[in-house]
């Protein structure tokens, strides 16, 4: 346990000693802020419209602002993942520091978990920047905070499983860029899989859409905590980390 924390701390330090971390956070804050602005603007116009028509229907902030913003945030998150994971192992292999880690009295799985946790925390920090906007809603209105919490849990779980896949790809090469591009391709694919179900309703399309990480995020964004989605995410995380462990082992056999 303490070994995991040693590795995790070192990775976090290294994220925050490079400008990329701050760049990603700033970029994300900007984009999510833009989405937030758009969603609020729509919300306000709709609200005025319905008042003018005299219906005076009560509109839900959670439904109209928070949910669309978080859906978008989940998609932008996909594109941040490769930047976070690409260096994890590729850089250590290139510079030879992997020899230090592997010949120290730490288990492979501790190295992997430490690195993955650090990546997850980094991702969490990026997500935090989007919370600033939502904080504004609390200042001026009374949104329900429970579904928001569920949605952020969903974002973290979704991130965790893509980060695990990214971590795996980073062990397969010495080249960060290759690892990054590979991870990006997979993230994109997992996102696009969701579209298949929009055109078709056959059994295969259901299976394919089941594989999509975005499909499983929908319920979270509505504030619904469904065990089947949690199980999906957790098992993908396990699969990703398991593959990472196998890859680390086989790398040693080969090189």
């Amino acid at each position: 346990m303490s070994n995991i924390w040693i590795i995790c701390r070192k990775e976090l330090k290294s994220y925050f000693s490079s400008p990329i971390a701050y760049g990603l956070m700033a970029f994300f804050a900007l984009i999510s802020g833009y989405f937030f602005y758009m969603a609020t603007a729509i919300f306000v116009t709709r609200g005025l419209e319905s008042q003018m028509m005299g219906r005076g229907m009560p509109m839900d902030v959670n439904e109209w602002v928070i949910r669309p913003v978080l859906m978008n945030v989940s998609v932008i998150g996909l594109f941040m993942i490769p930047m976070i994971t690409m260096r994890l192992f590729a850089e250590e292999k290139r510079s030879g520091t992997i020899e230090l880690l592997v010949t120290s009295p730490v288990r492979d799985i501790e190295i992997i978990l430490g690195k993955w946790l650090a990546a997850l925390m980094m991702y969490g920090c990026i997500l935090l920047t989007s919370m600033v906007n939502l904080g504004l809603l609390f200042a001026y209105g009374k949104p329900d905070w429970k579904p928001m919490l569920v949605a952020y849990l969903g974002l973290l779980l979704q991130g965790g499983c893509l980060l695990a896949i990214g971590t795996f790809l980073s062990t397969t090469t010495k080249n960060q860029i290759v690892a990054g591009v590979g991870t990006f391709a997979i993230c994109l694919l997992l996102w696009v899989l969701d579209w298949v179900s929009a055109f078709e309703t056959s059994a295969t399309s259901k299976v394919i859409s089941y594989m999509s990480v975005v499909t499983h995020f929908e319920p979270f964004s509505k504030g619904v905590l469904d065990s089947k989605d949690v199980i999906f995410y957790v098992s993908v995380i396990f699969l990703g980390l398991f593959l990472t462990a196998r890859s680390m082992e086989s790398l040693r056999w080969r090189s």
Binding site: K10, S95, T97, I98, E99, V106
Partner: peptide
């Protein structure tokens, strides 16, 4: 190792402390 396994973004004392913990 043949190539010293160093992390360029760390300071020397910080690095030695990290290795010591490891």
């Amino acid at each position: 190792p043949e190539v010293p396994p160093l992390y360029p973004e760390m300071e020397v004392l910080e690095y030695l402390t990290f290795v010591g913990r490891l």
